[in-house]
Computed example of a mutant assay.
Amino acid sequence: MPLLGYVVVFFLFCCSYALNLTALFLPKWLTHIIPKPFYSETNYGLFKQCQSLTGDCQPFPRVANDDCKEEGFCELWRAAGAGMILGAVVGTLTIVALLGVMCSHREKRERGWKLVSGLFTYVLLLAVPSIISFSIIAYLYNTSSIFYSGTKYDQSFIMNSVSWCLSTILSLSMLLASFIGNPDYHYYERLD
């Protein structure tokens, strides 16, 4: 695979990874807005809840606030956060592997094709925890009484969905390229 192919894969993966990290840390998975008479906005993140009226953020979910009174709510919410953290760790390892192959000289890049074509598994491992987190938040949004009328999906939820869609497409493209591509090293013969 030429260096340009590695650069394209690296750029697309970095875009997906940046969206994943932003969704992980930005506390805007769900938002509840009260427009009248006094504007108030409550943002729910994976780890904290922020109120616009007071301007402060608190850990979320908390037993002290009765966030965990519904059976399984806290466990599922924490599982969504853990899934996003797992995806971030796998993403970091994938970036290191891609940089290692890209920064090496041509002969190593040609041998690195096996590694990169196998990286579709790692890219998919970034997508799977994100899909699980996405599904958990969507499930809780639709079933929990904590998120009452007026609550809607927000920026982090959308970034997460774009991230796992991009990762899935990239992973499938890399898998397809490994099957139909003809890496140069298969046909390379050394002349002495």
Rank of each mutant, 00 (worst) to 15 (best):
Y6H: 14
F10G: 09
C14E: 13
A23M: 05
I33V: 15
K36S: 12
P37T: 10
S40I: 05
T42Y: 12
T42N: 11
Y44A: 01
Y44K: 04
Y44M: 11
L46W: 05
Q49A: 07
C50H: 05
L53G: 01
T54C: 01
Q58K: 14
Q58D: 12
R62I: 00
C68E: 11
F73W: 08
A79F: 07
M84Y: 01
V90K: 01
T92I: 12
G100W: 11
V101I: 13
S104C: 12
H105E: 13
R106V: 08
E107P: 06
K108V: 15
R109K: 12
E110T: 10
G112V: 05
L115E: 08
F120K: 06
T121D: 00
Y122V: 01
Y122F: 15
V123F: 04
L125F: 15
L126R: 02
A127K: 06
V128P: 08
V128Y: 04
I131H: 05
F134A: 10
I136P: 08
I137Y: 00
A138P: 01
L140A: 03
Y141M: 10
S144I: 05
S149E: 12
S156Q: 05
S156N: 05
F157I: 01
N160E: 11
V162A: 14
I169F: 09
L170D: 07
L175N: 08
A177S: 07
N182Y: 03
N182T: 11
Y188F: 11
E189V: 13
L191G: 00
